[in-house]
Amino acid sequence: MTELFADLPADVPARLRARLVTDAEREGILDVAYRTVDTPVGSLLLAATPAGLLRIVYSTTGHDAALADLAERVSPRILHAPARLDAVVRQLDEYFTGRRRTFDVPLDLRLATGFRRAVLSHLADIGYGRTESYAEVAAAAGSPRAVRAVGTACATNPVPVVLPCHRVVRSDGTSGGYVGGAAAKQALLTLEAA
């Protein structure tokens, strides 16, 4: 098979992929665009719908598994379409270089419902460089006794970093768990403390 395409320019697969993305967007059949980006906390998979940023996935979770989950839960019409996520990548770069404290990209939070959605709504209110305990977040989300449910909401946050669940810590001040791992959580808290 390789010999068949040996005379084609090296950029043909990239051009064909770009044409596929353009055609899919024009026809309205690109439901989820994705790309990966290298950051100080590892490789992140970014996925967006026309409504906004849908997922940020750490490599520890598994990018392929996340894409398969999106294909099942949202739509099988998923394409590697990096340009749709340029604004998110720019804001993440600004965040990681200390030039951004909040994100202002549209979000598609369809993957979170009920109390989890209430927790996510509150996360944006936890200011840069600040932390809140799981108990404080539970109270702010309207269910003061739902401390464990806050932990679950943070662990299933579809857009970590952008909705800063890393700012939620234990009541004794220790960091607690994080979807990207303990090292990623500490790196984000250290970045914001600088």
Rank of each mutant, 00 (worst) to 15 (best):
1 M>K: 09
3 E>S: 13
3 E>V: 12
8 L>Q: 14
14 A>F: 04
15 R>I: 05
18 A>Q: 14
18 A>D: 06
20 L>E: 10
21 V>P: 07
23 D>H: 03
29 I>Y: 02
29 I>C: 04
31 D>G: 00
32 V>Q: 09
33 A>E: 12
33 A>P: 08
38 D>S: 14
43 S>I: 07
44 L>S: 05
45 L>Q: 02
45 L>F: 08
45 L>R: 02
52 G>I: 07
53 L>P: 02
53 L>C: 06
54 L>V: 12
55 R>W: 05
55 R>N: 01
56 I>T: 11
58 Y>M: 12
63 H>P: 01
66 A>G: 11
66 A>H: 10
67 L>K: 08
67 L>W: 04
68 A>Q: 12
70 L>M: 04
73 R>C: 05
73 R>Y: 03
76 P>E: 14
77 R>M: 13
82 P>F: 11
82 P>W: 11
83 A>V: 15
83 A>Q: 15
91 Q>I: 14
92 L>R: 00
95 Y>V: 00
95 Y>D: 01
98 G>T: 00
98 G>N: 03
98 G>V: 05
99 R>L: 14
100 R>K: 11
102 T>V: 14
104 D>V: 09
105 V>N: 00
105 V>H: 09
106 P>M: 14
109 L>Y: 00
113 T>C: 01
113 T>Y: 04
116 R>M: 01
121 S>R: 13
122 H>T: 07
123 L>D: 07
124 A>M: 08
125 D>C: 04
126 I>G: 02
126 I>T: 03
129 G>E: 03
130 R>W: 00
132 E>V: 01
132 E>C: 04
133 S>F: 14
135 A>L: 02
137 V>L: 09
138 A>H: 00
139 A>N: 07
140 A>H: 05
143 S>K: 15
145 R>A: 14
147 V>E: 15
149 A>M: 08
158 P>Q: 01
164 P>I: 10
166 H>A: 12
171 S>I: 13
172 D>E: 10
172 D>M: 02
174 T>H: 13
174 T>Q: 15
177 G>I: 06
178 Y>N: 04
181 G>K: 08
184 A>F: 05
186 Q>V: 10
187 A>C: 01
188 L>V: 01
189 L>C: 06
190 T>E: 15
190 T>M: 10
192 E>T: 03
